[in-house]
Design a protein around this nucleic acid. Sequence first.
DNA 1: CAGAAATTTCAAAAATAATTGAAAATAAAT
DNA 2: ATTTATTTTCAATTATTTTTGAAATTTCTG
Lengths: 168, 168
Amino acid sequence: MNLSEAKQEFISSWGAFGSQWGINRTMAQIHALLLISPEPLTQDDIMESLAVSRGNVNMNIRELISWNLVERRTLPGERKDYFTAEKDIWKVATLIVKERKKRELEPMLKLLDQLSQVDADKREKDVKAFTDMVGQIRKMGGQADKMLDLMVKAEANWLTGSLMKLMR
Amino acid sequence: MNLSEAKQEFISSWGAFGSQWGINRTMAQIHALLLISPEPLTQDDIMESLAVSRGNVNMNIRELISWNLVERRTLPGERKDYFTAEKDIWKVATLIVKERKKRELEPMLKLLDQLSQVDADKREKDVKAFTDMVGQIRKMGGQADKMLDLMVKAEANWLTGSLMKLMR
DNA sequence: CAGAAATTTCAAAAATAATTGAAAATAAAT
DNA sequence: ATTTATTTTCAATTATTTTTGAAATTTCTG
């Protein structure tokens, strides 16, 4: 396989993979493209590479920036804006974890706390099943939350380091 | 908040949460409903509770069964099939991890291995950027794969136990 | 085995999400 | 201040995903 075939395959698969995880296909593809671009790219570069419209590129780039995965950069003497992606994949992973935690996990924990306050007789089978399940999910969610905090704070060798050794 | 309000909220939020993670809303809602139902339910029960069609319930139930999250059960003397969900949330988590690992992570690792074989001169900037990134992702993916294997094998206290203590 | 009950399938319809493209806004250059 | 380049917005369109519902199939029952 030559380079441009491999690039195509990478970008397309990254997009498909993203879709399965609730991430806009084009957003994932733009991210993939920037990940493997040694130099910053303009919106026009991206439009051409992926054959998508200007509006599409613009919106998805802004979304990537809001996740801190992509940075806008203005080169001196250049009129256009350039974009680069964070290239350290560990940092990428922690940035994504940080955002999903903030946007999804934390609100979910808040909701579960509310739901556990349900006002009903716990001797009833239905009530017990409900509060047990909410309690279980709340507990596991809280643990995951703490664990992801540690991950975000930890260094890049978290996965390879003492954790893996311990669990062998 | 009374029980039925709380149930409604739980089911609806679980559906919304699922959507964000690429899981069909109705599938997530059916799962939520079964999670908090002390007794097995029929397709008709689910249709009524969630106000969705028979075909929809049937397809999503089958999908849940293929994830081993739901079990079909035929009660003696009863004509209809009944369905129950696994209620231990740790088991639920490991079942989901197991399936996503098999369906998504493993194929992705296979692809990355192929992509790393790209036939080109590594002194070229483009080539180096590409193979570096593929290599990084491959490495992290491989580590995640091992780690998730451990999680699947581990007991329910994995998150609270020595892991959390170690990382403090 | 015939009839009834329940489940499954899947083409068509509906709902949702993503994309386009052109107009508006903003920023830079002359 | 005007022109030109670039970015942003968003209503309309297009694509994708989900859902419906009725027909076909399968599974029970007497």
